[in-house]
Computed example of a mutant assay.
Amino acid sequence: MDEAGQWRRGAVSIRGSLLQPPPAREVPALMSQWLAWLDADGQQDDLITRATLAHHGFLAVHPFRDGNGRTGRLVLNLLLMRGGTPPALLLQEWRLGYLAALAQADRGRFGPLLNLVGRAVESGLDLYLEACDATPDESWMSLSTLAATSPYSAEYLALLIRKGRLEGSKRGGRWHSTSAALARYHDDITNGRIPRGRPPGRTTRDAPSEG
Score class of each variant (00 low, 15 high):
Arg65Phe: 08
Arg109Trp: 04
Asp106Met: 03
Gly10Asp: 14
Gly173Pro: 02
Leu91Asn: 08
Leu80Trp: 11
Leu102Thr: 03
Asp39Ala: 14
Val121Thr: 02
Leu53Ala: 02
Arg25Asp: 14
Pro151Ile: 03
Ala88Ser: 11
Lys163Asp: 15
Ala100Asp: 15
Asp188Pro: 00
Glu138Pro: 00
Ala183Lys: 08
Pro199Trp: 12
Arg50Glu: 06
Leu53Glu: 05
Thr178Tyr: 06
Ser169Gln: 14
Leu79Met: 14
Pro195Asn: 03
Asp187Met: 09
Ile194Cys: 00
Leu116Arg: 01
Arg25Ile: 08
Leu116Met: 11
Glu130Gln: 14
Leu59Phe: 10
Pro200Cys: 00
Gly164Val: 10
Met141Pro: 00
Ala154Phe: 03
Glu155Lys: 07
Ser177Trp: 09
Arg107Trp: 00
Leu160Met: 11
Trp94Asp: 15
Phe58His: 02
Asp2Ile: 07
Asn115Tyr: 01
Ala154Gly: 04
Tyr156His: 13
Arg15Val: 13
Pro112Lys: 01
Gly57Ser: 09
Thr71Asp: 02
Leu99Thr: 02
Ala158Val: 06
Gly108His: 04
Ile194Leu: 13
Gly192Leu: 03
Ile14Trp: 03
Arg25Lys: 06
Ala207Glu: 02
Gln6Asp: 10
Tyr128His: 10
Leu38Lys: 00
Thr178Val: 05
Ala183Gly: 01
Leu113Ala: 04
Pro63Met: 07
Pro23Ile: 09
Leu102Val: 12
Pro208Trp: 02
Asn77Tyr: 08
Asp106Lys: 00
Glu138Gly: 01
Asp66Lys: 01
Ile161Glu: 10
Asn77Cys: 07
Pro22Glu: 11
